[in-house]
Write a protein that binds this DNA or RNA. Sequence first.
RNA 1: GCGAUCAUAGCUCAAUUGGCAGAGCACUGGACUGUGACUCCAGGGGUUACCGGUUCAAGCCCGGUUGGUCGCCCCA
Length: 425
Amino acid sequence: MSQKISGVKGMNDVLPGGEVEAWQFVERTARELFQRYGYGELRTPAVEDTALFIRSVGEDTDIVGKEMYTFEDKGGRSLSLRPEGTAPAVRAFIEHAVSNQEPVTRWFYLGPMFRYERMKTGRYRQFSQLGCEAYGSRDPAQDVEVLDFLWQFLGALGLSGVRLHLNTLGDDACRPAWQASLVAHLRGQQGTLCADCQRRLETNPLRVLDCKSEQCQSVARAAPDIHGALCNGCRAHFEDVKRLLGALSIPFEVDPRLVRGLDYYTRTTFEFIASDPVLGTASTVAGGGRYDKLVKSLGGPDTPAVGFGLGLERLVLLLRATGRQFTAPPELFVAWMDDASRTEALVRISALRRAGFRVEFDPRGGSLKSQMKRADKVGARFALVLGDAELKSGEAQLKQMAGGEPVPVKLAGLGEFLSAARATT
RNA sequence: GCGAUCAUAGCUCAAUUGGCAGAGCACUGGACUGUGACUCCAGGGGUUACCGGUUCAAGCCCGGUUGGUCGCCCCA
């Protein structure tokens, strides 16, 4: 008995016919833009040693604590499907001793990530992330280059209504003292915190700051502000980031309660947040920041780094909500009448395709009417029919599907005609 | 991990107190000898998500499972 097999929960197919074309547009745009910024593409395996994520992302984060796809392979190793892209990139950076070969390394990656979560709008168990990693510079110019990329990228996609939220988390010199005073403040108000935040107080106290519940918000507002506790180095860094963003005319808002869920961030953190209702409550499109200690903590040289991760599903949702079309319909559709014209049609079609034109036909043949319906269905710009008369005269009536008089065209001159037509699109 | 809600043709959805499972779109063919869209006609398509129960009789009532959607948590 054959049983129906369906796809795995939370993991989706992307089909051609509008959907995959939107993805390709995003990917093309990203690759082209990264090339301009001097970032090379890094490809790492989907699976890593589980310990990599425990040590980088953090044992107490939700991502590692309950969302990883972890399994044991036949050799008894504990492996995990990657839940994010930074840790594998850093692993590769260290493993290939890249910093011995060049002082600055700038990589981007694009591929599937996996988190075992309950699904909702814009959140899936397999999702695609686009991200970058810039190693080797502590200069705020590097932070701002990353932000500038994202700003340009969203602009190139035609997405407006995405706002940049910016914050700093300090570093080893100032964060511990601030965090201690934060915890002390929260403990004083412990009774008024929601149940979740009571727990966060122990596991990840920074997250109390962006809790959405009313009472936690009021406690958070009265909490000691990181901006008042920054050491001189962190203060200067943050001021410089803001100044450089201003110089590039990139709008942003400082959000002192912006905290990220991964443990490795230092100094700059940011999120790009969309307001479009198609995302529901999944409004964060991209997030990232600086992680100056991560490379060293994973056993590499003391190397500062900045990067971001961006959710492609959410981006594609936004893009498709704009109603834009990304398909490239055929420029010419060829119909044939009989066996002799079928041969001629295939030869002509192949030649035009080799010359770079998008040409379609109905591989089933069939009545002329059905072939013309097909031409209409696939959105061809022009259509022509090959039969006895055309083979004899070497000329065909080229029909413009959108309307207008058919134009006689020599079969030998089809390429030239289509080239000219492209110019008038 | 918690909660709400839903599941009928490829898609969007109907089906009266439980009583023969339907329409639109899409697909195929024809009306129309070699020219699509508009119109008309016809046709193919279903174990009503799955498993069990109640009943003479279940798409409908009851229990469970799986999956979708939305919210909480968290994140991209």
